[in-house]
Design a protein around this nucleic acid. Sequence first.
DNA 1: CGCCCACTATTCACTCAGCGAATAGCATCC
DNA 2: GGATGCTATTCGCTGAGTGAATAGTGGGCG
Lengths: 181, 181
Amino acid sequence: MGVVSTSHVLLGLLATGTMHGYDLKRAYDERLPQARPLAFGQVYATLNRLLRDGLVVPAGHERLAGPDRTAYALTDEGRAALDQWLGTVEPPMPHVNSALLAKVVVALLDADADRARTYLVAQRRAHTDRLRELTALKTAPEATVDDVVAADYAIAHLDADLRWLRTTLERVADWHREVHS
Amino acid sequence: MGVVSTSHVLLGLLATGTMHGYDLKRAYDERLPQARPLAFGQVYATLNRLLRDGLVVPAGHERLAGPDRTAYALTDEGRAALDQWLGTVEPPMPHVNSALLAKVVVALLDADADRARTYLVAQRRAHTDRLRELTALKTAPEATVDDVVAADYAIAHLDADLRWLRTTLERVADWHREVHS
DNA sequence: CGCCCACTATTCACTCAGCGAATAGCATCC
DNA sequence: GGATGCTATTCGCTGAGTGAATAGTGGGCG
């Protein structure tokens, strides 16, 4: 599944009004609090790429109670790129990019089936623990819809992992036999 | 959830015997056929980092029916790093890194609820289509256990996406109201 | 007043990751 | 003998990501 495209998200945030880098970072943290943390440095790097590609333009260079700051605004091209992104479905699972799967494959390859089994059991434990955390976070009284939707996403996928862990545990012996043949 | 660590997978493949870059790439394709495609260039880049860090050493430099080739072998340090990796559980969903979620958030932010709804419906369609492909692939007579396990992983997560898409569709109106307040 | 701290805003230097093209030897086949 | 294809590696470039550095301003505090 596609990894989240930082540049498109920044375009989307800029579409709500001109902003400078620092504000963008804060808007990102506010709107996508559960997402991968975004460093300031990366915001400016991405902005520069968007500028280079003509998707944003500088819109004011003021100094106001602090250091210089440059605000950026979407161009028509930027608006078009954003609409294009929003109107396109993400390719669903074009390849299986899972650390879990990779680790089990490697464990089966150069250790024995027990090694893989031990790992799977430990991972299952970590998953159930995290699942508890997330359901608590979701049902907390101060949870916003943002929080609930993000938590639901994580919960659904942890659940998917758990189901996969269970059936894979049952298959470890067969699988090990096949790998070493 | 952790993205698959190329260097550890290569260490794992090397643990089954000394290999040179080209063989490593083939072993990767054979053992992880459903994983993200790995370019030759990246194999050598990663090998050089492993060499620099003392996790592998050159083990033979032969020319045999073709260009020069350098085989690499695991060092004790490399073996230790591999064991360390295999023995560690992956942090389950430390952050929600989903293109789906990001796109819906952006759609709600600078378009209306219908825009988000249209996207969700289109995405659901793409998911169910892919789901059909994968079940076909899994039940095909020539499917190996590798194929089945990988397909199960993908299926479980597509299913998780679908459940999330359904409940999110129901919540779009509420969510849109909260975002614009 | 003078000083330190915290906040705003951006830049810099560096490494990893990923991709496509380039290079180069050998095989083989028509 | 020229074209094609396989083995094996290198190169150049862009993007992604991190942590530290820089610099100005305002507020609190003794």
